[in-house]
Amino acid sequence: MSLIEIKDLHVSVDGKEILKGIDLNMDGGEIHAIMGPNGTGKSTLSYVLAGKDGYEITQGSVLFDGKNLLDMEADERARAGVFLAFQYPMEIPGVATATFLKTALNAKRREQGLDEIDAMDFLNLIKSKTKELEIPYEMIKRPLNVGFSGGEKKRAEVLQMSLLEPRFAILDETDSGLDIDALKVVSDGVNALRSPDRAFLIITHYQRLLSYIVPDHVHVLVGGRIVESGDKTLAELLEAEGYARFEESEAA
């Protein structure tokens, strides 16, 4: 049994079918990349897996560690170990980043039957994590994502991921809006989290990110279907040739 088993997943939004039968199995330790042109259902897939409202699942199933993921609320999924690094992280005015992180961490600890984290332990943990990710410590005192630059927002996402230690992490266009230095820091952060019991699903438009986070499998999503799968060389091919040939076949 794989860690994540997506079977014949069909999803509609306002009666319009966006995903038209996705099949994907992922094991712990694996990094899968989903590539594809804009408006092809990449973000829909990430939101559906994370449990956002507004998506109608018309067919298919998703098993996470043998459990029916689609039956769980978004927060239950998160506490079970599903993490989504957002393309556009939300601003939470007035809530210090540290406060937000602590609340999230304690929600997970509660699920595991642990006590809330001790204030000093939390500070030490945050100090070491921010150092690893080259995040200025001052940043965690600022309200979450408020006035953050694009790069800071993405670093904050990786910081959260690193703190919450998910078993299944989805990175939705994490490379968008990042300059090359930030891209490297973020990628290093993700690579540091690679582990045999953790799977990553990386959604991206460009091959660029995949030179830093090297995937085991690459899938091409066009018109709501995975039209081709391969190893990392497929990404390089796409970078060179673009998506035109898949789009043509989709139209035909």
Partner: peptide
Amino acid sequence: FYCQQRGM
């Protein structure tokens, strides 16, 4: 959704 995605 953002907060819930973080387990709250």
